[in-house]
């Protein structure tokens, strides 16, 4: 009993020390605790050890920097607006067109995985669909079937956007004119990545 009583301070020192080291090792493993605030128009996905664990909404969130990551995205509508685009038609004529569209993020998780920068998806999809759908018409038919062309673009783009976690809210063809195409004109169109 006497010997144990004499060792009591040593044992408490040992326990306290182990506690301190465990505390340090815990922080070493998990990183430091940080706070991430999401605004009302933002949503996020919390990743733990590299994998998504849950979707989070606006507000304050505690995140262990180093072992957790909050990937957030802006949920406000994306406006897509292009003017003076040219597409070759089936009869050798060309159409000059422009469009305006509104797209909303419906499923952030799908959108995040759809591209490196998911805001590029509506632009790329609408440009692709508009060009593809208008290119199947001839100079005469495109003027008579403008509404059919619009609905065709809307359906095709809407389907593709849904697959990527977006919703096409509106699509409007702002400009459509048919004419002949001059060769130098095509060299003025820049071909930049979206």
């Amino acid at each position: 009993m006497t010997s144990l009583a004499a060792l009591a301070p040593v044992l408490s020192l040992a326990i306290a020390g182990i506690g301190v080291i465990a505390f340090l090792l815990f922080f070493q493993k998990h990183g430091r605790l940080t706070t991430v605030s999401l605004l009302p128009y933002q949503r996020g996905i919390l990743y733990r050890r590299g994998y998504p664990v849950r979707d989070v909404g606006p507000g304050k969130h505690r995140v262990w920097a180093g072992s957790e990551l909050l990937v957030h995205g802006d949920m406000r509508p994306i406006t897509v607006n292009y003017d003076k685009l040219i597409v070759g038609l089936q009869d050798g004529l060309a159409a000059q067109y422009g469009f305006s569209a509104n797209v909303e993020v419906q499923n952030l998780r799908k959108a995040v995985y759809s591209a490196r920068n998911f805001t590029n998806i509506p632009h790329a999809t609408l440009l692709r669909c508009a060009r593809r759908c208008l290119g199947v018409y001839s100079g005469k038919s495109i003027q008579f079937e403008k509404e059919a062309a619009i609905s065709r673009i809307t359906v095709e783009a809407g389907t593709r956007l849904n697959k990527a976690g977006f919703e096409l809210v509106s699509f409007r063809l702002t400009e459509l004119a048919v004419g002949t195409l001059q060769l130098p004109a095509m060299k003025n169109i820049p071909d930049l990545p979206v």
């Binding site: 040219i86 759809s114 591209a115 590029n120 790329a124 999809t125 095509m186 071909d191 990545p193 979206v194």
Partner: peptide
């Protein structure tokens, strides 16, 4: 993740 690219009127 994929990155969409467009080559327009090449």
């Amino acid at each position: 993740r994929p990155q969409p690219i467009l080559l327009e009127r090449l």
